[in-house]
């Protein structure tokens, strides 16, 4: 049996809403540790990998590992009809491998709504991605920034053009774009003090200057998810896609991987 319980207002619904910008269905793998979800956008440019640990929920039970294709669009539609404070239960039994049941219960237990959602085939969403610990060393630069700053950057950059250059060296991280109507250049000086301020950008490591050019259209879902968290971690590499991560409690994460248009080592945009 698989069962999780949470109070509406938790991060899950917000995350699912943002995933809808990428896909309508996603594959969910459940284990006793928590559940993971993979989603690949229709253009195959963005890949999302998330892990919600069991600790993120009020209660969580998974007796046996199972994989389920979920119609995220239908699930979100149902969750939208609930009120804040409702208790959400998602349940799958060993007797019925074709459906999951989602129940919404008002805090005073007066009203209950339930839906049986038919499982779908979402195996096309699955990619084989290496463990982050094995991949991390391929990232020449990793830094953290307040997600509000990241979101504001996403907003101001999208005004001008789709192509955005992210450049990083040991001193500065910059986001820039230029188009017919002008240009935007945002730079953040890295905070290197022992006591970083809350609003600062903190460099985890950088091995020389590096710049990535991305089509910012593909960052829409990522910018939406970052709103739900305090911090985002961004990884740049010439061998790997751009990585943007938000941390869910201690062990969980949402990681976006976005294929860049261009990756250059040894130079930064001025």
């Amino acid at each position: 049996m698989f069962e999780l319980k949470m109070v509406k207002g938790s991060t899950l619904q917000g995350v699912l809403e943002a995933i809808l910008d990428l896909v309508n269905v996603a594959n969910v793998d459940c284990s006793s540790e928590g559940f993971s979800l993979q989603a690949l956008d229709t253009e195959h440019v963005v890949f999302l990998s998330l892990f919600f640990p069991s600790e993120a929920f009020q209660s969580y039970r998974c007796d046996e590992d199972r994989s389920m294709g979920i119609a995220i669009a239908d699930m979100v539609d149902f969750l939208r009809s609930s009120n804040d404070g409702d208790i959400i239960t998602i349940k799958a039994t060993d007797q019925n491998l074709e459906d999951i049941t989602i129940t919404l219960e008002s805090p005073d237990k007066i009203k209950t709504m339930a839906i049986d959602l038919r499982l779908v085939d979402a195996t096309s969403q699955c990619l084989k991605i290496p463990d982050w610990n094995d991949m991390e060393s391929d990232y020449q630069a990793i830094f953290c920034m307040p997600s509000e700053e990241f979101r504001l950057n996403c907003k101001s950059l999208s005004v001008i053009d789709d192509d955005v250059v992210i450049s990083v060296n040991e001193e500065v991280i910059s986001f820039s774009t230029k188009g017919e109507s002008g240009c935007v250049n945002i730079s953040h000086v890295m905070n290197k003090t022992d006591k970083p301020e809350k609003a600062s950008v903190i460099l985890t490591h950088a091995r020389g200057p590096l710049s990535l050019t991305l089509n910012w259209r593909y960052m829409k879902s990522c910018a939406k998810v970052s709103k739900l968290f305090d911090q985002v971690k961004i990884g740049l590499s010439t061998k790997r896609p751009l990585m943007v991560e938000c941390q869910i409690v201690e062990k969980g994460y949402i990681r976006y991987f976005v294929a860049p248009l261009k990756a250059e080592e040894g130079k930064t945009e001025t």
Binding site: V45, F47, T123, C126, L127, K128, I129, P241, A259, L261
Partner: peptide, 14 residues
């Protein structure tokens, strides 16, 4: 025009 690389250039199918 410019070709947008896909994520499958980086990660293979499971």
């Amino acid at each position: 025009g410019r070709k947008q690389p896909t994520i499958t250039n980086y990660f293979g199918r499971a």
